[in-house]
Design a protein around this nucleic acid. Structure first.
Length: 467
RNA sequence: GGCGACGUACCCAAGUUGGUAAGGGACGGCUCUGCAAAAGCCCUAUUCCUCGGUUCGAGUCCGAGCGUUGCCUCCA
């Protein structure tokens, strides 16, 4: 069984292997710009990257996983003008840019934890790697790939003939149809490596450099940090599909011009989550966050399951109905797995091994998680021994990350936690009513419990309840 | 203007090199039950936007059309 991944660079599925003698996968994922909360569309991409990491590990690879935190330099326009996102966030919240960065970084990590996304081996902040970025720009300057304008040092994309190849760009037409203000740029695809601070204004974040006081361009941070932590060639570089044209194309240009080596062997891109016909966008004002989902009574893992029901390279339409469907499905899944997990034995029978192989094949086929979920359901329906079923569930959950090794209650949000003594009291009242065949009162009490999100179950041993 | 993606049951969605439609949710039916709930079982597309073509055979390949939609501004 081999692992195949769809590589944006070649637009085809390719066999993934590690170069000879290399012990760990060098994985770099473009992380968040911490000027605002992450919305669930952003998070879909990180769930996809988490699946990738888990699949790599399931296939026996060690993974050196690096995720960046962009806390400087990302302007509100990729055309290298507009405001700095961080300064904008600071203005909006009345905090300093550094406070904004810390606040949203923490919020972001909380979301990761809630969604059971495995932490990267290394989190790296752009502001902690200013010297690496300056050094990279210097190297490009030495090799003659840069030029200076009144507002910064720019990359001269015309000197990198392969520039349009990655994203299949038609530069001439881009030039014609461009909505980007050219400023002093020579070619529409040129981009800022280092921006000068405005003369009349002190920026909250600025550093000294060989070219004067200023701050790094957005694209340079990823190249600098990726190469600093993982070396000049990566095995896999990930991000959202929107990064293909500008961000990753620029990363390739600046990195490969600096080192003369391929920047990444594989490029994987996650497709957008959509709301109705709109994509979810931070600049559009309102957007959905994990905490909003929780306020509406969802468990963050309901969303994780929802994300896993579609393939990462396809658009996924978000509707509340679809999320509810995922929540119901998740409850039903837990009913089955909760009854099994204590019984886990070994995967021994040929039949169980076949299931395991099917699962491995599905996830190895460019991370086909929807198919993998189907296989999980197949196992639960099959007439295997419980100890083997349980073992398979736990094995699959290594990749699915749905916390199936814990009963559902263990990760219920605080909101779901109910007053147990009150519940017991109502149940005993109901028992009295039932004993005297007062069904109306009995049903009323059940409805009352239902309002508290408590489900009761009458059995031979008396009444039990759950949330 | 350039470059893309998608169109499978009520909803979400898989479908690998073409061989005769996964899975989940909802709905409905049955068992059980005072009725429910819970649990268990069962049912739900002769058909994959349309029309042509290739083929013994196409959701799956090719062509045209229709529809939806993304990126090239910020965006994951």
């Amino acid at each position: 069984m081999a692992l195949h991944l769809y590589n944006t660079a070649t637009r085809s599925k390719e066999l993934f292997t590690l170069p000879e003698g290399q012990s760990a996968v060098r994985l770099y994922c473009c992380g968040p710009t911490v000027y605002h909360f992450a919305h669930i569309g952003n998070l879909r991409t990180y769930i996809f990257e988490d699946s990738l990491r888990r699949v790599l590990e399931y296939y026996g690879y060690a993974v050196n996983h690096v995720v960046n935190i962009t806390d400087v330099g990302h302007l509100t326009s990729d055309g290298d003008d507009g405001d700095d996102k961080m300064e904008k966030g600071a203005a909006r919240t009345g905090k300093s840019v550094w406070e904004v960065a810390d606040f949203y970084t923490e919020a972001f990590m909380k979301d990761w934890k809630a969604l059971n996304i495995i932490e990267p081996s290394i989190w790296c902040k752009a502001t902690d790697h200013i010297q690496e970025q300056i050094a990279l720009v210097q190297k490009l300057e030495e090799k003659g790939y840069t030029y200076r304008t009144s507002d910064g040092i720019y990359f001269d994309s015309a000197k990198f003939p392969r520039y349009p190849d990655f994203a299949h760009l038609d530069v001439e037409n881009l030039q014609q149809g461009s909505r980007v203000d050219m400023g002093e740029k020579r070619t529409v695809t040129d981009f800022a490596l280092w921006k000068f601070s405005p003369e009349n204004q002190k920026r909250a974040m600025e550093w000294d450099s060989p070219w004067g006081i200023g701050f790094p361009g957005w694209h340079i941070e990823c190249s600098a940090m990726a190469m600093h932590h993982l070396g000049s060639t990566l095995d896999i570089h990930c991000g959202g599909s929107d990064h293909v044209r500008v961000h990753h194309t620029n990363e390739i240009a600046q990195s490969e011009c600096a080192t003369g080596k391929p920047f990444s062997r594989f490029w994987l891109h996650g497709e957008f989550l959509r709301m109705g016909s709109d994509k979810m966008s931070k600049s559009a004002g309102e957007f959905l966050t994990v905490s909003l989902l929780m306020e509406k009574g969802f468990n963050p893992l309901d969303y994780r399951l929802f994300a896993l029901t579609s393939h990462y390279r396809n658009y996924l339409n978000f509707t509340w109905e679809a999320l509810e469907s995922a929540r119901e499905g998740f409850k039903n899944l837990h009913k089955k797995t909760d009854a099994l997990i204590g019984k886990a034995g070994k995967i021994e029978s040929e039949r169980a091994q076949q299931w395991q192989n099917k699962f491995k094949e599905a996830i190895g086929d460019d991370l086909n998680m929807p198919k993998a979920l189907g296989i999980l359901n197949g196992v639960l329906k099959d007439d295997l021994a419980d100890c083997e079923k349980a073992a398979l569930v736990l094995d699959f959950d290594l990749v699915l990350g749905l916390c199936l090794d814990h009963p559902r209650k263990d990760y219920a949000s605080k909101k779901d936690v109910v007053d147990a003594s009150k519940v017991e009291e109502l149940i005993s009242l109901r028992a009295t009513a039932r004993a005297s065949k007062n069904w109306a009162e009995s049903d009323r009490l059940r409805d009352e419990l239902k309002l508290m999100n408590v489900t009761i179950k009458d059995g031979p041993e008396g009444t039990t309840w759950s949330t």
